Amino acid sequence: MSATQTETATESWVHYHDGGKPGRRRVLTGRAAQETFSEVPKIDFRRIYSENLEDRRELAKEVGAACRNVGFFYAVNHGVDEEMLKDTFGALEKYFRLPTDVKMETHNQKTAKFRGYEAFLEGKLDPSTRGDLKEGFLMGEDATDPEQNRPVTPSTAKPRNQWPTHPAALFWRPAIYRYYNAMYTFSKRMLHIFALALDLPETHFDSITTNPMTNIRAVHYPPQERQSDVGIGAHTDFCWFTLVCQSKTAYPALEVLNGNGIWIPVHPQPNTFVVNIADFLKLVTGGTWQSTVHRVRNFGGEERYSMPFFFSPNEDAKVSVVQHLRKEGEMYDEFVVGEYFQKRLDIDRRTHLDDGNGVGEKRNGGY
């Protein structure tokens, strides 16, 4: 029985966080099982670069079906430079091998946005575990970083990111920004495909993503030995969508939860990104699209590295359910993206750092 599953004499349930709130799903087997997905679909993304609108619309149809039925899909043949991706994974391995004191220079507890280094077991999405068995580094939108070429305003004038200054770690910032820029460009194209999948003009969301909220979380998952451990607990993401590039391992560590409460493995695939819909797009579609629960459990005996890129609308953007998906007579709330993001950050992220009195709880950030 995993850390996120409970059983009674007649029933078994999977527990998770969905939209920042605890949830659970009954495990259904045999005659009780419902029609749901048993694998993550693969979609050829070469058409995203086509100048023919009909090609992009055909791609959007496949993407829309995956968003409605699964909430996850593989973006195959994404077109992002493979050598750059290989170099970035090399930088991840090099960074996480650095001495702890070098990494702790940018400990995420030093910033309001929890940017920087997160040590092992500091995140704790599943309260039944001793913590998430991973270490990571979080960066994101920051107008004071010249690499992002963003306008500096009173609300964005304070630095958000932290970067190491030790000579042994100076390779890290340029390596991450090469990845950041490539994923940012691809995400802008992806947003057009999502708009077409919703029967909207492909530029529909452009006005609210002029300065989008973005994050990269570089993550290292060591091999797990305890069955009670989890790399990261079961949850949904709180952004527009997530692109994941994961290292090649023989044993799949990323798992997504289907409608029957069964964990479906997401195998590493060459020349692919794993794409998942997150809470903002679920909200904007009135629940038509799935923000699917997922987790990481690394039991293959290998070191695993992952680089999720999170893309959201502008921090001050106001969003609600798109007009043609609204039901007659129902009221729909409008929410400010940055406020919702911070609320989810506060709910989902906890650390149990030693506060001098044993175990203490603090809020945390990241993936």
Rank of each mutant, 00 (worst) to 15 (best):
Met139Val: 13
Thr8Glu: 13
Thr36Trp: 10
Met213Asn: 13
Glu7Pro: 08
Gly329Tyr: 07
Tyr305Pro: 12
Lys343Ala: 11
Lys94Phe: 02
Arg130Trp: 15
Ala168Gly: 00
Gln290Cys: 11
Gln342Thr: 10
Lys318Asn: 05
Pro146Phe: 01
Glu302Ser: 08
Lys86Ala: 09
Ala66Arg: 04
Arg26Trp: 09
Glu122Tyr: 12
Lys113His: 07
His324Gly: 06
Tyr221Ser: 03
Ala91Asn: 05
Thr144Tyr: 05
Asn108Ser: 04
Gln269Glu: 15
Asn69Thr: 12
Gly20Pro: 05
Asp81Cys: 12
Gly356Leu: 14
Arg160Tyr: 01
Gly131Arg: 12
Gly261Ala: 05
Thr214Pro: 01
Glu334Gln: 13
Thr106Cys: 06
Phe280Val: 12
Leu53Thr: 08
Gln269Cys: 14
Asn260Gln: 12
Trp289Ala: 04
Pro268Ala: 02
Pro127Phe: 15
Glu315Gly: 02
Asp81Lys: 11
His220Cys: 07
Glu7Tyr: 11
Lys124Gly: 03
Thr111Arg: 07
Met213Glu: 15
Asn108Tyr: 04
Thr153Glu: 14
Ser12Met: 05
Pro167Val: 06
Val76Arg: 09
Gln269Tyr: 09
Thr156Tyr: 10
Thr36Pro: 07
Met331Ile: 14
Met1Ile: 05
Tyr74Gln: 02
Leu281Cys: 06
Met331Ala: 13
Tyr184Gln: 14
Phe96Ser: 04
Pro22His: 15
Ala143Lys: 09
Arg56Lys: 15
Asn260His: 08
Phe335Asp: 04
Gln224Gly: 01
Lys134Thr: 04
Val14Phe: 06
Arg130Ser: 14
Val336Cys: 10
Leu200Trp: 08
Trp172Cys: 06
Gln162Asn: 02
Lys134Asn: 10
Gln148Ile: 02
Val63Gly: 03
Val152Ser: 03
Leu196Gly: 00
Glu35Gly: 10
Phe299Ala: 10
Arg295Val: 00
Arg344Thr: 03
Arg97Gly: 02
Phe335Gln: 04
Ser50Asn: 11
Glu141Cys: 03
Ala253Glu: 07
Thr292His: 03
Arg47Glu: 15
Pro22Tyr: 15
Glu35Lys: 14
Gln162Lys: 01
Ser38Trp: 10
Asp101Leu: 02
Ile262Trp: 06
Phe96Leu: 06
Pro313Cys: 14
Ser2Phe: 07
Arg326Phe: 04
Glu105Cys: 03
Glu135Phe: 09
Pro270Ile: 11
Ser320Met: 09
Asn149Gly: 03
Gln162Pro: 04
Lys282Trp: 07
Lys61Asp: 14
Arg25Gln: 15
Val27Met: 01
Glu202Ile: 02
Thr185Met: 05
Gly140Val: 05
Val296Arg: 08
Val76Ala: 09
Asn161Lys: 06
Asn149Leu: 04
Phe171Thr: 09
Ala218Ile: 05
Asp229Arg: 11
Gln290Pro: 03
Glu7Asp: 12
Asp142Tyr: 03
Asp18Arg: 15
Pro212Val: 11
Ala112Gln: 10
Phe205Arg: 11
Ser291Gln: 12
Leu243Ala: 00
Ser155Tyr: 15
Lys343Ile: 02
Val152Cys: 00
Val266Glu: 07
Leu281His: 08
Lys42His: 13
Leu92Asp: 08
Glu118Tyr: 05
Lys188Ser: 07
